[in-house]
Write a protein that binds this DNA or RNA. Structure first.
Length: 131
RNA sequence: GCAGUCGGACAGUCUGUCGCCGUUGCCACAGGCAAAGGAGGAAAGUCCGGGCAGCACAGAGCACUCCACUUCCUAACAGAAAGCUGUUCGCGAGGGCAGAGUAACGUAGAAGAAAAUAACCGCCCGCAAGGGUAAGGGUGAGAAGGUGGGGUAAGAGCCCACCGGUCGUGCAGCGAUGUACGAGCCGUGCGUCUUGGAGGCUGCAAGUUCGCGUAUACCGACGUUCGAGGGCUGCUCGCCCGAGUCGGAGGGUAGAACGCUCCAGCCCAAUGGUGACAUUGGGAGUAGAUGAAUGGCAGACACCUUUUUCACAAAAGGCACAGAACCCGGCUUAUAGUCUGACUGCUUAU
């Protein structure tokens, strides 16, 4: 399977019902300044392996410009590093909805965010499948 | 040249790489490829005014809310333009603030003798009782128009001159007002009030269509050949369908499409106007996301600041405010810096 680094609309989480369930029933893992809330789902034909949601609180960044920058960096970091995570889930035959939350009140560099995100995704797999 | 006032324009540029969003074209089911395009002057605050949408609505009046110098612009405005009056800051160019009316009533107030037909002290007349007096005193935002002179027992618009205000007339102006002459002798703020003007309510999560889905359980109104309601239609007549329809309440969905971007819009020119702006002619026109795209990373250049240097230059740091959510016109607030027009003051040279 050839890798591509695309990140289309279908991979984003946008169904309200799923989001409500995710926040209500999901488990969480943290790697400061990030926190992930995730929820395993039943495999379904035509649906992507991972549905992702990136959120930055208005309390932490008052201006929309700052929130956009953080979201864009995180989205980019996920786009470039999603394959190991998706493949691991595929091997287990599992779908998952994940919300990535940003916890700090300050900006972090892209390089730093990328490293923390990798760690975060690894932690999800460890917690879910190796217990 | 330096300092300043009032405007106007712009608000980094380029390259590489990996991506996102809708549009169009091609391959042509899913999907892929290509092309051109993809945040602002404030996109912000949501403070005004419209368009648009739904609901409500015979007409008129009352109440309520908002606005208030004049003329003018506009779709409209609490906005803009050109002016007027007062006041205030600045040497000046200019800037700030205030501006309908006052007949009646209320109010001010722990000040002061007194807040409106004023006498506490003072001054004058008088033996006294008492009377005259608003020039002086202190209070207050405001004390019976101000200053000077005459006058008087002492005083006072009591009289006179000038000044401020008010009213009348003439002149100038569309007007607010200005000005000349004359008259007369003039208290302040706020509220109620008076006059004139404007105003239905809710907002694109409006609203329309499709899909999914439950239960029509319950209540009310009208009705089944004496026919509710619907269709054809701008309306009436007429024809057709016809056993349910409408409202409340409850339950269920919250997915998709439309609305959704081409316009009271923008740019240029001419004409009219002091101007806001209007008219005419010409031109260019793809952001439309929706748990929300318009970017991430790397590099180069430009710009600014500091340090070093005679200088060329080098190093380090910085590079604003800020992100569309139906669309316009304003207002307000934030903003590194660059360019530019008109004008003012100072200085130098001619």
């Amino acid at each position: 399977m050839e890798k591509n680094n695309k990140f289309t609309k279908s991979e984003r989480l946008s169904r309200k019902a799923v989001i409500d369930r995710l926040y209500a029933e999901g488990r969480s893992v943290a790697a400061f300044p990030l926190r992930a809330v995730y929820l395993p789902l039943e495999p379904e034909e035509g649906e992507p392996t991972v549905s992702i949601l990136i959120a930055v609180s208005k309390k932490r960044f008052r201006h929309a410009v700052d929130r956009n920058l953080v979201k864009r960096r995180l989205r980019e970091a996920y786009r470039l590093n999603k394959h190991p995570f998706a493949e691991a889930l595929q091997q287990k035959g599992c779908r998952m909805a994940v919300a990535i939350l940003y916890l700090d009140k300050q900006h972090h560099s892209f390089v730093n965010l990328q490293a923390r995100l990798k760690k975060l995704m690894q932690a999800i797999i460890t917690k879910e499948f190796e217990q």
